[in-house]
Design a protein around this nucleic acid. Structure first.
Lengths: 187, 187
DNA sequence: AGTTACATGTAAAACGTTACATGATTGT
DNA sequence: ACAATCATGTAACGTTTTACATGTAACT
């Protein structure tokens, strides 16, 4: 899957591995992430498959950069992926829910502490997504040389992040409240 | 992570690999999943580490079953995991959002079709979670020999599934509406 | 006649994370 | 002084998926 993310970004603009990582983190961190070594490995594979080419830029004061450019074959593969509908839902793996599922066996106070900690983390995340306004998206448009059309879709993914965090916080509040009510009477 | 899911279920009741898979699918599919071969491999590792033991039950008409039982060391490791707070949020990887992010480059109609297909899939999922009532949870309580306390936490994870799907459908509706409005004027 | 349920596993490939190695420049 | 930014990569490890292998019994 990562290969398509990389092809997608390179389809706007030629970039090196390090910058790809940063661009991804700035624009897609609420629905996709990859660490640097994974990105480098994928770039190597994509080049071997002829989807991208690279040139080494020599720098005197800074480290050399290997800049990747998408090929025609790469554009075709990417366009094909874009046009192929997903026939399934992305399955979720949510560690907190796994823990909560088994938490009848844990100390009630410990569970509450953990839920409150997660609430704080999600609250911060929500704030970040909510503050990421149109001007931030415009910054990315310039950096990648994208069009105004892109802004619409990018904002839709940002909006998904906001809704997700709002939903998550609502669930945490509900669950915390239920546990607090229980604790009043018993242990 | 899967190891803790397996230990958690075995903490209620001894089970074989095949049944673990089914129990997991029935009770945890909205936040965790694993395929059979992965489960078998993890069970092997857990046994090597002394967290579980196994006995082979010979059957005449059906295949033999290897039934796993949690050890004291296993219970300790599981309890420790339960008590350790998560200091981070589980990062999301959502393929649909990755596609939408790049969809300015796709046919508008194709994007709409894909969003509508996902809406139908999420609608079905929501229905399933909403219909999974208290009686279903009671079934699982009996199957695993769990307590009524567990029902509270299991219902909380079910509720998380409902909220997630409602949120997802809301986002799809919003995004579809935005694209439809755009299409009225232009291409 | 074909599929699903029951049941366990191996092998290979794909995907992802963590640790290590290197080293200059810029900001606090 | 210390941390962060810039920059690329390898090695080892860990996780997950897919394909293969085997075989009976019950259901449609």
């Amino acid at each position: 899957m990562l290969r398509y993310a990389l092809l997608g970004f390179l389809n706007y603009h030629s970039l090196n591995g390090y910058d790809l990582k940063n661009v991804m983190e700035d624009s897609a961190r609420n629905f996709w992430h990859a660490d640097l070594s994974q990105i480098y490995k994928n770039l190597k594979t994509l080049q071997e498959q002829g989807m991208i080419t690279s040139t080494l830029e020599m720098k005197e004061d800074r480290p050399d950069r290997r800049v990747y450019t998408i090929t025609e074959a790469g554009r075709r593969e990417f366009a094909e992926w874009l046009a192929t509908p997903l026939t399934e839902i992305t399955p979720i793996k949510e560690v907190l829910l796994l823990k909560i599922f088994f938490s009848a066996q844990a100390e009630r106070i410990s569970v509450l502490t953990q839920l409150r900690l997660q609430r704080e983390l999600h609250r911060r995340n929500l704030q970040r997504y909510a503050e990421q306004t149109v001007s931030d998206i415009e910054k990315n448009i310039q950096r990648l040389g994208a069009s105004l059309d892109d802004a619409l879709f990018w904002d839709a993914t940002r909006r998904a992040g906001v809704l997700y965090e709002e939903m998550y916080i609502q669930w945490l509040d509900e669950t915390i409240a239920r546990l607090e009510t229980l604790s009043e009477g018993g242990t």
